[in-house]
Simulated scan of single mutants.
Amino acid sequence: MATKEDIRSSRRLHRRTLTPEHLASAGESLAQHGTAWAASVSPDAGATFAVYLGVAFEPPTIPLITSLHKAGHRVLLPVCEPGRLLSWVYWTPETAFVRSPYAPIDEPEGERLESSVIAGTAGIFMPATAVDRDGNRIGQGGGYYDRLLQGLDASGGRPPTIAVVFDDDLLPSGSIPAEAFDRPVRQALTPSGVVHLHEGPEEN
């Protein structure tokens, strides 16, 4: 079995071959399917969802963020803090972004809230470089989201989670080695739609 770093490197290399047209089309499809998923987990408008800002060759999430906002939902975006912790900022169309000093991502400016705010969200859109059919996910390697989910699981307040990937990043069962600290997801959001995965922890 390939290591996580091998898979992460392979997927990143593949993503760099994607054209601007492919990225734009993927972003629009992710917005459509992601907003429908949001409606399925929280039928009422005005729910809060945790998302992230896809940068470079990651799946584009600005269309999704904008679509959720237009649907009446509130959106929280992450900020990397020391100790591999995340804080969160509410996004609006006027939100400005700055480069993180801790990770290769852009982060929103604004009032930072502790990760305990995520327990009250309707769902979490999670970054991933790959996810397999068992629900095992590979992130960017920082461990921020695994640590977030560990805390939510320990408190019993974990919302539904969905990993955002391109279609080719969805791998067969058994492709990704699972470690004790990993927290599987139950669904994947791809440009082709929402995929229900075989395994994953029970979610509230």
Rank of each mutant, 00 (worst) to 15 (best):
K4N: 00
I7Q: 00
I7R: 09
R11L: 06
R11C: 04
H14M: 10
R15P: 04
P20H: 06
E21A: 06
L23Y: 10
S25E: 14
A31R: 03
Q32Y: 13
T35E: 07
T35Q: 00
A36Q: 10
A36S: 13
W37C: 06
V41N: 06
S42V: 07
A45G: 12
A45Y: 07
V51E: 08
F57V: 07
P59T: 14
P59H: 06
T61S: 06
I65G: 07
H69E: 09
K70N: 10
H73Q: 13
R74W: 11
L77S: 06
E81R: 15
G83I: 09
Y90R: 13
Y90F: 15
P93I: 07
E94M: 02
R99F: 11
S100H: 03
P101A: 02
Y102K: 01
P104L: 03
I105C: 09
D106T: 13
E107R: 05
E107P: 00
G110N: 12
E111N: 12
R112D: 08
L113T: 07
E114H: 09
E114I: 02
I118L: 12
G120A: 07
T121H: 05
F125R: 06
F125L: 09
M126F: 03
P127E: 09
A128N: 12
A128F: 03
A128R: 08
D132S: 01
D132Q: 12
D132G: 01
R133T: 00
D134Q: 12
G135C: 08
G143C: 14
Y144Q: 04
Y144A: 07
Y145P: 00
L152E: 11
D153Q: 11
D153K: 02
D153E: 13
A154S: 15
G156T: 12
P159E: 11
P159G: 06
T161K: 01
F166Y: 15
D169R: 02
S173V: 01
I176Q: 07
I176Y: 03
A178Y: 03
Q187T: 14
A188C: 05
T190N: 08
P191E: 06
S192W: 09
S192Q: 14
S192H: 10
H196P: 04
H196L: 14
E199S: 03
E202R: 12
